[in-house]
């Protein structure tokens, strides 16, 4: 009896603990939403957390701003192209690493992750110089192009995708490929008809997380673009330097930047931690 009561009070304590930490986690985001729903006049005076009226102009003026629209389109194009490219190449790479006897392949596998671990600030200068002065064909430079960012994001997303997919491809029994080979299929058919259908869930998760990483990236997007290929994160940062005081619109832009994060949370929640620890942690 006492044991039972202890157990009930313990789980009550745990709920309380988690309730408090959940409020702390959500409060900053909730406050941003509050700011985005207020006009400039409402923002001054004592800060209240209650939303009494919804001031939609922050959102409507943001969405109808042509600069914002361009940033949004750029971000969507870059993140999507990067996710598709990375998932496809990572599937090829992990298939090779998993099924072929290649000398030094494990060292290669470990080496890929160093690309992910390196501090991006270190590569800003050489990449900027390469993009503006070296990778130049006739008049075409990689600087300020979407393709430049798409290819660059592969450097840190490919290792992530390879590390995530490796376990999944390894888990597909080799007998399945052998059987297909015996039936006269070629390598390409094995990859697309046997491996691909079985790896689909893993590929989807990898693609989704890759998409978010590309969407969230700021430092390279801010340095390697100037006008045409600016992304939504650079647009958000510009609010601080250009129109530093329009907090309502900044909050609205930030809220719109958050939307994909919320979608991903719904789609791939279980895999986010595994993804962020390169598969070291399985939930």
């Amino acid at each position: 009896m006492r044991h039972l009561r202890n157990k009930a009070s313990a789980s009550l304590g745990a709920i309380l603990f988690w309730l408090i930490s959940s409020i702390v986690t959500l409060l900053p985001i909730y406050w941003m939403f509050v700011v985005s729903a207020r006009s400039r006049v409402q923002l001054f005076g004592s800060p209240s957390f209650l939303i009494t009226s919804f001031f939609t102009e922050n959102y409507t003026s943001t969405v109808s701003d042509p600069a914002f629209q361009r940033y949004m389109v750029n971000s969507i194009v870059i993140a999507t192209a990067n996710a598709v490219l990375v998932t496809t190449l990572a599937l090829f790479a992990t298939y090779a690493l998993s099924r072929y006897k290649l000398p030094g392949k494990e060292n290669l596998f470990f080496w890929t992750i160093t690309n992910r671990m390196a501090p991006p600030a270190v590569f800003l200068l050489p990449l900027f110089l390469l993009y503006t002065q070296v990778f130049v064909v006739a008049d075409v430079r990689l600087f300020d192009t979407k393709i430049g960012l798409i290819l660059l994001y592969c450097v840190f997303n490919l290792p992530f995708a390879i590390w995530t997919l490796r376990g999944m491809i390894d888990a597909i029994p080799k007998e399945l490929d052998e059987a297909a080979f015996v039936d006269g299929a070629n390598t390409w058919q094995v990859l697309t008809k046997v491996i691909l259908p079985l790896a689909k869930p893993g590929l989807a998760v990898t693609g989704i997380l890759t998409w978010v990483f590309a969407w969230n990236e700021y430092l390279f997007a801010a340095t390697l673009t100037s006008v045409h290929a600016r992304t939504i994160t650079t647009g958000l940062a510009e609010f601080v330097t250009v129109t530093g005081t329009n907090w309502g619109r900044m909050a609205a832009t930030a809220m719109l930047t958050l939307v994909p994060a919320l979608l991903v949370l719904g789609l791939a929640q279980r895999h986010i931690v595994a993804g962020l620890t390169f598969g070291a942690v399985k939930e």
């Binding site: 988690w18 986690t25 900053p28 985001i29 406050w31 700021y218 609010f239 930030a254 994060a261």
Partner: peptide, 22 residues
């Protein structure tokens, strides 16, 4: 609760900065 605690992990760092600035 677990879902709520996963949320900050997928937010763009730049948006986290914006949140805390506000």
């Amino acid at each position: 609760f677990r879902t709520i605690h996963t949320l900050p992990l997928v937010i763009a760092p730049i948006a986290v900065g914006a949140t805390w600035r506000l």
